[in-house]
Amino acid sequence: MPSPFEILGVEARFDLDLAALEKRYRELSREAHPDAKRSATLGASIDLNAAYRALKDDLSRGRALLEARGVAMGGEERENDPGFLMEVMELREALGDARDAKDLGKVLVLATRVRGFYDASKKALTAAFASSDHAIAKHHLGRLRYYRRFLDEVDVIQEENELA
């Protein structure tokens, strides 16, 4: 099974140029479209879509890169830094309180803070991949998951408030 990097014919690295990636995907999609060429199969077009989706997103691109480099993700790595878990718990608690209080300003302040954490971890992840330090890469990939979950929650709250 070729890696998503191979399917899209791009270099296997974390800091891909996402605009170039999208362009490449569009070109290949046209070629692989089942109507465009008789030899092209529907399967190829499905693989292409899945590969693009995997590479577009930081978390799945990180996992795909580890896999492409032959590093097992080991199922799910457990986060066992109590300080980090405590921080996430407190952030989620604060977000829950802000949501209950309908304090959208507070929600945004928290979101900005967590986005900062996300970006910092992503930067460290990029560096770890560049120097092939895969233990560190896994560590930061794990943290991104928690920050992403928090930011998803922010999106939900914002949607609620737009509807209200």
Partner: peptide, 13 residues
């Protein structure tokens, strides 16, 4: 006990 779910990023105490 304070734990996290690596699959989804949720936390529980």
């Amino acid at each position: 006990g304070l734990v996290g779910a690596p699959a989804c990023g949720d936390v529980m105490r």
